[in-house]
Each structure stands twice: as C-alpha cells, then as structure tokens.
C-alpha cells in the first residue's frame, strides 16, 4: 500500500487575481477519510478553493503541507472540472491517456480503460471521439478518467451542474461507491439536495472565506451562521 498523502494542512493560503483577494486566508485540515461538500453561492470562491487545494492556483502567501512531498501528493489526486475537458481522441483513449503518463504498459492500460468504460456504460461509444458525447457521457468519462489512476483524493467541481436527473443519479452512485472504497472526496455543489444526499461534512464558503465546517447533518439542521441559514432556506445571498 502506498503511504497516504493526507492529512493536508493548509495555513493562511490565499488566492488573488489581479490584486483582488478571491479566497482566503484559508486554514484547513483535510483528513484522510471522508466526503466533503463545499457549498456557497455563485462567485463565493468554490472553484478557486478547489483549484488552490489541487495546485492549479498558486497560493499567495501561506502554505499547503501534504503528508509527504508535494510531487508525490500530486500523483495521487485527480480533478474533475465543471465543464469536462475532453481530449480530441476516442472515449477509451481519454481514459488511457493518464495511465500511459504514469508509465503503465499499453496492454494493461487498455484493460483498465475497458473496465471503466464498462462501469460507466459507455461500451457502445468506446471508439467515438469524446467531443461528440453528450454532456452526461462526457462527465461520466471525465470521472472514469480521474478514477482510473486510483487517486487517494478526488476533487470534483459541480460535476452534475448541467445534467438531468438520471445522469446525476448515475454519477452520485459512482461517487458513493468511490467513497466507500476509501477515496477521499472533496466536491462543490450548488444543489442543496445533492449536498444532503452525499455529504459527510460541509464546508460553507462565502465571499472567499470559509464560514463553517461541520458535520453534514448538523449543517443542514442547524447552521451556525446567518449566511448559511439563508443559503439553506433558499434566500438570495449577494
């Protein structure tokens, strides 16, 4: 067993864009197990926070301290983008790509990719260019591609934001299964119902600051801040 890249300790990390503070300063401990949902209104900084944790944004000041080296940590995490980024290749080649990057032999990579194609019910589209898949199929493929490398930590940025009910249900089932298998999941969503269905913990972010981090049941029943209260009640937060 590979040693865990978690816990992650974040201290005073900030994201700035053109001199404006977008997120932070953030102080966090990400434990090795769990399913955390980050919630908050539009523009509150959910995507930016996720990108900061994954290393897609350079922190302004502060630090991200993984258990072990940052290079190793980066190899054991995957990120699923809100709008899936598909390589201009076939569906199966999209899954194979990160495996080949990790020096997994071609035949084994193909075997793993086929298993994943089966798991997400895309057999009939195996050799279709991924750009021509439907939105839901693309997102499932992106999740399969992210999971095929067996990450310890999976980030998802509103993975079902543009999907209908059945696609959402399929993806949620896949994520729950992944969580049960021991993968640490950190995901953003707007959707309060989805938060209730999936979250073990909730992080509530507002105007770039994490206002609350609590157990999901507690958060939805009795939020600690008036902003979170308003958010759950469906009031419009500016």
């Amino acid at each position: 067993m590979v040693s865990s890249i978690l816990p992650l300790k974040v201290e005073n990390a900030r994201v700035e864009k053109r001199g404006n503070r977008i997120v932070g300063p953030i102080n966090l401990d990400i434990s090795p197990k769990g399913f955390t949902i980050i919630m908050g209104p539009n523009g509150s900084g959910k995507t930016s926070l996720l990108r900061l944790l994954h290393g897609l944004e350079n922190p302004r000041g502060g630090s991200l301290d993984w258990n072990g080296s940052t290079e190793t940590a980066q190899l054991h995490q995957s990120f699923v983008f809100q709008t899936p980024i598909m390589l201009r290749r076939t569906a199966i080649e999209n899954i194979i790509y990160p495996l080949i990057l990790r020096n997994i032999p071609k035949d084994e990579a193909l075997k793993i990719a086929k298993e994943w194609i089966g798991k997400i019910n895309l057999e009939k589209s195996t050799d279709i260019n991924a750009r021509f898949l439907s939105g839901g199929e693309k997102q499932k493929l992106a999740i399969a591609r992210a999971l095929a490398t067996k990450p310890q930590l999976l980030f998802l940025d509103e993975p079902t934001a543009n999907l209908d009910g059945s696609a959402t249900r399929e993806i949620e089932a896949l994520l729950q299964e992944t969580h049960k298998a021991g993968t640490r999941i950190i995901m953003t969503t707007h959707n309060i119902g989805q938060g209730k269905r999936l979250a073990e913990d909730v992080m509530f972010i507002y105007r770039g600051n994490i206002l609350e981090t609590s157990n999901a049941k507690q958060f939805f029943k009795k939020p600690q801040t008036k902003e979170a209260r308003a958010f759950i009640d469906g009031d419009i937060l500016e």
């Binding site: 190899l75 995957s78 983008f81």
Partner: peptide
C-alpha cells in the same frame, strides 16, 4: 487553451 487545466492537473 482548451487542454491547459487538464494537462496541468495530470502533471504532464
């Protein structure tokens, strides 16, 4: 521009 985030995320 299209691939940027993905290729960075995959540590290429």
């Amino acid at each position: 521009a299209e691939y940027h985030d993905l290729l960075i995320s995959l540590n290429t």
